[in-house]
Design a protein around this nucleic acid. Structure first.
Lengths: 142, 142
DNA sequence: GTAGGTGCAAATCGTTTGCAGTACA
DNA sequence: TGTACTGCAAACGATTTGCACCTAC
């Protein structure tokens, strides 16, 4: 995920939010990582170079990104409440339970749609969305 | 899920645990529900008829059931940390986001295995397990 | 200039733990 | 009888909130 200052500023302003230096710093640091992070993980990463940014602000920025649909929650592998930045289409996660790396893969499997159709037929449920995550070890951690 | 007193007692004793009335009450109440419940939800259900049972005991029984593999966590729809009782094989969940009903469906889809194989081939990940949950509205809540 | 954002400290929520008393096996 | 279980209260960690100050626009 690559996000320039300008791009972040544009996104924030388009949503009626101010582009403060704290927000830019937090979002850039978050986007730089290919891991899934808890708020405290992100705060730790920031602390070294930006000791002036408080944990509360990290929470508020993550909450903001969540409301704007720019993050997705990661369930498996972590303790829940982990986040990964996201500007892509609907997709799924491939998680390394050792190093916490996340790889996205697109949700273009016709099989899943067929499974949804089958479930709807058999149970009468109206399916709105789904969660699909795979957990294992990435090539580097094997 | 139907669990008689005797069945619960047997399970507990087989695992070296004492069959106390609190445990029987909590497990029966839990098994009676087809919804996914947070510890507090379960405690609330019990409070009416069993005001003598404390929240701490609910937590300890849920932890015990978790260690025995008799519950599964539900991620979508709730705030995480919701549980559903479970004595079945590996399966997936179909969740009603209105009434919190859970329907299990078996994990016998050959498509999923094929998808896993494909992902392994393309990414080099070793996949250990997965989460798959569908969220929507049950026939009654539509 | 003003609305919105930040940082601190305190409050709050969910969960776990220490300990003394209780009850199952 | 002895060990495991329970309930209370207190501790704990993660997250949210109140408030005074600050700053982007």
């Amino acid at each position: 995920m690559k996000l320039s200052d300008d791009k972040i500023k544009t996104i924030l302003r388009q949503n009626g939010c101010k582009a403060t230096p704290q927000r830019l710093t937090i979002i850039k640091e978050f986007a730089r990582s290919d891991k899934f992070l808890r708020p405290a993980d992100l705060y730790d990463k920031l602390k070294q170079d930006h000791p002036d940014i408080g944990m509360v602000t990290v929470y508020r920025v993550l909450g903001l990104l969540d409301r704007l649909g720019l993050v997705c929650k990661v369930h498996a592998g972590g303790d829940c409440h982990s986040y990964k930045i996201n500007t892509a289409e609907h997709h799924h996660h491939l998680l390394c339970s050792n190093c916490r790396t996340v790889i996205n893969f697109p949700c273009d499997e016709p099989d899943l749609e067929e499974l949804e159709a089958k479930i709807t037929r058999e149970t009468g449920f109206t399916i709105k969305t789904h969660i699909l995550e795979f957990v294992g070890y990435c090539p580097g951690c094997k």
